[in-house]
Structures are given as C-alpha cells and as structure tokens.
Design a protein around this nucleic acid. Sequence first.
DNA 1: CCAAAAGTGTTTCCTTTACACCCATGC
DNA 2: GCATGGGTGTAAAGGAAACACTTTTGG
Lengths: 253, 253
Amino acid sequence: MQPVSPSGYDPREFPPFAVTVDIVVFTILHDALHVLLIERGQDPFEGCMALPGGFVRPDESLDEAAARELEEETGLTKKEAYLEQLRTYGAPYRDPRMRVITSAYWAVCSSLVIPEAGGDAAFALLAPMSEIESGSISLAFDHRDILQDALERLRGKLEYTSVGARFCPPEFTISSLRRAYEAIWETRLDPGNFHRNVQRSPSFKKVRRKPAVVGRKGGRPASLWTAPKVEPLTSAPLARRHKSPMRPARGSD
Amino acid sequence: MQPVSPSGYDPREFPPFAVTVDIVVFTILHDALHVLLIERGQDPFEGCMALPGGFVRPDESLDEAAARELEEETGLTKKEAYLEQLRTYGAPYRDPRMRVITSAYWAVCSSLVIPEAGGDAAFALLAPMSEIESGSISLAFDHRDILQDALERLRGKLEYTSVGARFCPPEFTISSLRRAYEAIWETRLDPGNFHRNVQRSPSFKKVRRKPAVVGRKGGRPASLWTAPKVEPLTSAPLARRHKSPMRPARGSD
DNA sequence: CCAAAAGTGTTTCCTTTACACCCATGC
DNA sequence: GCATGGGTGTAAAGGAAACACTTTTGG
C-alpha cells in the first residue's frame, strides 16, 4: 500500500485517539475571579473537581464542540459568552483509561446560574481562582495546568484587548469594568485614569445616560457603555498590568 | 454500562480521530522571512505545498511528536530551534480522507539545510513568507490559515519576548538581530535605539569581544551577544511593532 | 585618507502617573 | 448638609523617537 501522507504513514495504521474539549469558564463573583468546576462522580479522579467538557463529535469542529459543551453545561450561547481556544494538551497518560487529547478553551461570561445538584448527579460550583492557585482544591487530570495557563492568557489579553468587557453585562459602567480588572490582576487601578482610557478607546461606546441599578448607596450615577466586540485595543491599554502584585491607589482602601 | 465521563459519554463509543502535528519552521534567508514547505506527491492536494508534519504516536506527547517531526524533517534538535504550540485545527473535513485534527507548532531556527530532492521523493523548499501571503503558492489542507496564524503569533511574540534571537546563531551581533526584526515586521528600526534596548535588557548578555565574520566590508567590528533563553522581556521591548507597514529610518535607503 | 558599520549622547516630544478637584446623586 | 462614587483637569516624571556625533575597523 502506498503511503498517503508526506511523512509516509497511513492514518489507518494509527491507533485511535479520543478528542475532547475542556472549557475554563471565567466569571466575576463578589469582586473575585471564579471558574466553573464539576465534581467527578466516576472512576478516574472520583471526587475530584474537573473542568466541564466532553467529546468532540465526528461532524463538528473543535470550536463547535466547545460552543456546544459550553451551552450544555451552562446554558450560555456564543452571544452571551466569549470563547477562545487556549491550547491542546496531549500527554500520553493524562487520562489513565486511554489516549485522550483535549483542546482546552476559555470562556468569559458576566453571570452564570449554576444548576443545583440533584441526587448523585455531578454537581457544579464556582470556585474562586485564588483557592485553585493555593492548591486547596483537588483537580482531575491535568486540569490544574490548564487553569494556570488560562489564567495567564486571560491576564495578558486583558491588557491588549477589550475582552474584559465580557465580564460585564452588555451595558456596563466603567467602574464595574475597572473592578473586573482589579479582581483579575489583584491590583488597584486609578479610577480617573482608567475612565479616561475607556473613553478614548474606539472599542468602547457610550450609550444613553440612564439611572443605574437599584442597590446604589449614593454618588453620581454612572453612564453606561458597551463594547460591541472583543478586539485588540488600538491606542492605549485601559490599564497596565504590573509585575509587583499590588499597587496602592489614592484615597481610601 | 456506566458513563465514564462527566458529560455522560463513553470514549469507546466515539469514532477514532487521527491526530497529527504540523510545523511552521521559520528562518531568515536573504533578509526575508521564509518557511519550510514540502511538496505533496500523494492523493489529496497532490502537487500542492504543505507544512512538514506527521502523525502523533501512541506513546508520545504532542510536544514530543512536534520535536521528533522537526528533527526528522530538518535535523534540528530542541537545542537548535525554538518550538512552541500554535493552536489546534479540527474542522471536520479539513482532510477529505478521514477525521484528522492537527496541532500546529511553530519553530524558529537560524539556519536550515534543505535536503535535495531525490527522484520522485517529496522535495522541500524554503518559501518566502511574502509569496505565501500574496497567494502565489498553492497550499494543501488549511495550511494557509495555519501559516497566517503563525506569522501573527511570531510578530506578536517578537515584541514581548526574546524569541527573535533564535533567528540568529548562538552568538550574534545586535545588528543581525535587528535585521531579523526588520525582515519579520517589514519595517526599518533605528539602529541606535535598538542597540540601547538590547544592552539594557536582562535577557541578553554580551560575550567576549571578537573579530566578527569574514565577509565584512569595513566598519567597526561588532560585539557578540547571547540570549540564554527565550523569555518575556522585562523592562522595554527591543522595538515596537507599528500598525503602519513601513516607517523610514534615518540614513540611506 | 575615506567609507562603513558599531556604538553613545542628547534633545524633543509624548505618554503615563498621581492626585486635586468638581459633579450629581441618596440619605 | 454630607457621604459616596462619577468624572475632569493638570503638573511632574519618565520613556520613546529622532538624529547628531564619536569610535573602530577595511581598503
């Protein structure tokens, strides 16, 4: 039989791989970055937490599989969440049962309703990213690595793109966007400078002034803004990511 | 049978995927960015050019497969080339024969000896990236997309990391590094400012002064430098990537 | 000597930063 | 009024860009 690939191998000679997608779903809760985890009720890593995910079907692309799994596990559609491939993990024994490679994706959403656990079905929770980094949560497979890589990617993209806006509802205030940045970078940002940079950025548009949400304590009502799409920021970043963990801002803290 | 994954599927129910790696090997030739391509002699896309690559074996990780294929096709080891995963491409019919997903990698090397084509064996060539972008080369599968994504990643990483040094031999002059930047970004950079930025960067170390290569026409001999590892640039980037395609520099040209 | 490339100094300009201050609202 | 957060002004500090100039070689 003739070889059918440039490297001289016939695909049919090769043992099958299972291909999955795993999704890191980020959201902000109580001014802290959280990720969606699901408790495994089955054999490998039973009782550990794992990223939501599942097998890629024969008729769908990786992106489609990720979008489908995201919707199945959270109800979020492509309109409601940002979704991007992170990287693919393929160590030979990352799944002890068989050869599985997984394309990890990361998603950003502004709010997430967690289905309540019913009976012994897998239950889901939003875990603070800080608890994952501190190692106090047991994670299945190589999901700790994936989460670490996803966090790194998120923190980087926050600086150079408008993806941060996806942590906020479609119409949001500049200060709520700033609080998302502060949560993700674990830093404090100057409100005045941040405000100016959002104003100047062509990625953000002001919408009609409107009395904001109910639970306000006082203070001037904020204008609402939108970010029509996630795109690289031309002109200046909204804020700069610093190496040093915390930078004090003026005023009270 | 019990479901064995959080999403309730048994891996054994799923049709097999073939998994390959494809590698974008970048190098500088005649002050222009080139990539290694191989002519396909077989069925799908016969006569088109394709990225080097091959099937992932059952006992190796994706990174190992990429490193092995790189060595098989170019002779380059991990010491001699930088190698990094780009992303994974998995459209259902990207290979018309069967379901194949491919993890694309990109590599950077300072020099590359192309094995001469023998008989009707697949022959390799270094193609200028400009010719690929202009569309004058027929590429197999989705390899044009992969090359475009790889170029974008390379251009970005050039700004924030020391990966550009891998286009130069282990010991190199600052001006040869600058010429690599100029080739990849298709721009001109100020020699004085670039020099100062390399000097200041902790990622670069000056080695003993040495009379440089033979084919020199005159001019003060340059010091040699090394970049021990590819890492994010602290302090300032060596140069800034501009949106506008060409920026004139002082002096002739 | 001159030409050419390496490397340094310096000025100008622009961005970022820090923070003072005013604005608009709830209580 | 007063507290609170929204939003603007601005001066000082820092860094990048442009380019003049010095250094060191080959011919």
